[in-house]
Design a protein around this nucleic acid. Structure first.
Lengths: 211, 211
DNA sequence: GTCTATAGAAGGATAGAC
DNA sequence: GTCTATCCTTCTATAGAC
């Protein structure tokens, strides 16, 4: 009895981890049960013994990965600091998080896009709906000082999140225009610099926003 | 004899269009030759008669769609106006373009991410490599006035492009946090408002950037 | 050029032995 | 709980008639 389809069974865990890697790398359609079995070092039949079907194995993996992403974002936004500090904290910590999970953005974005219903179960489980309101209430005075109305929050939040997420999702596309980004060290440096660039960029814009 | 694998044959064109739709919607792995044939109103065997294999059909489609995206961006950035005006023009026109091709971003991003080599052929064909330099040279004085160094250009360009592209790529993800975005009209309004929000946001940040 | 029929391979899933 | 063997469906691709 453990969280979201993962018990403490050693084999189950090995399968789950292998499946996470393969699905994250190849996506649902591109993943092969055989490859997952190989990576887990067990037989294909065992996958079905533990997870019944490819669909169910995928859902178990997907939900954990989606939750991982959202919880990271939510935890940072929930911190008890000023909005200004929150921007800097978010970009610092979220880029650190994504640098350890660089394929997570494109995986989640693509799978949800191809099949939006896979996330419906989570909308209720994790009540992120009122995030915007919570965030605005918490920083109402500060945000009004920046000329940010409640109705501006979606635009602002999408902008902030895209600063960290987009470069990972679009890395190979970016590399077409900037081939130096193919180099891991260069890209790493780019993202390290982005922490400050993006923070300054956002805060600077907010600071001088006409009200 | 026509561009990138598309002749003027009526059937070939029907197939090509059907394939574009299906691949864009489901991706390479998720697409089925049968479904493409059905959509084109012809037989499966004809697909192979005209395009030999799924791979080759996909490549023909992919190259055209990638080119479509890049040429749009390049055309706007090549305009003979100030950088400031360029930002506003880009966000206006690119969001218009994407609102007509909403699935293009996630399709391109995902396919390139899953198989980076599919774009290698294009890196030489379309010489976008020196885009950053071109753009910087053209607006050197203006950009220096904003405190933007040449080495800041990648950060700035990624930021600008993400403003229009990210919301489309992440639409379903955004909808988890903001369910109202599931409504097409609402999303359309959101993107219309984003033209101004993002333009102001960027220009405001540049204008007051410390040098 | 276009179709029907089918080959051939791959992949998900299950039966049954241990 | 784990394995081997195999079933069955799906999918790409081709052969061959018209």
């Amino acid at each position: 009895m453990a969280k979201a389809g993962v018990t403490d069974s050693q084999t189950r865990l090995k399968i789950f981890r292998a499946a996470s890697d393969i699905f994250e790398e190849k996506g649902y359609e591109g993943a092969r049960m055989q490859e997952i079995a190989d990576k887990a070092g067990i037989n294909k039949a065992l996958l079905h013994y533990y997870f019944r079907s490819k669909d169910q194995l995928f859902m178990a993996v997907f939900q954990v990965l989606l939750k991982k992403m959202f919880e990271k974002i939510m935890t940072i936004f929930a911190a008890d600091i000023t909005f200004k500090e929150k921007i800097r904290l978010f970009l610092g910590q979220h880029i650190d998080f994504l640098s350890k999970n660089p394929k997570l953005p494109i995986f989640l974005l693509n799978e949800i896009s191809k099949n939006p219903s896979i996330a419906t179960g989570l909308k209720e489980t994790l009540q992120y709906g009122e995030m915007r309101d919570l965030l605005y209430m918490k920083h109402a005075k500060e945000l009004r000082g920046y000329g940010i109305k409640k109705s501006d929050m979606p635009q602002l939040m999408v902008t902030v999140v895209s600063m960290s997420v987009f470069p990972y999702a679009a890395r190979e596309m970016i590399a077409i225009m900037m081939p130096q980004m193919l180099d891991n060290k260069r890209f790493k440096t780019f993202m390290e610099e982005r922490k400050e660039f993006a923070s300054d960029f956002i805060l600077n814009s907010l600071k001088h926003r006409k009200k």
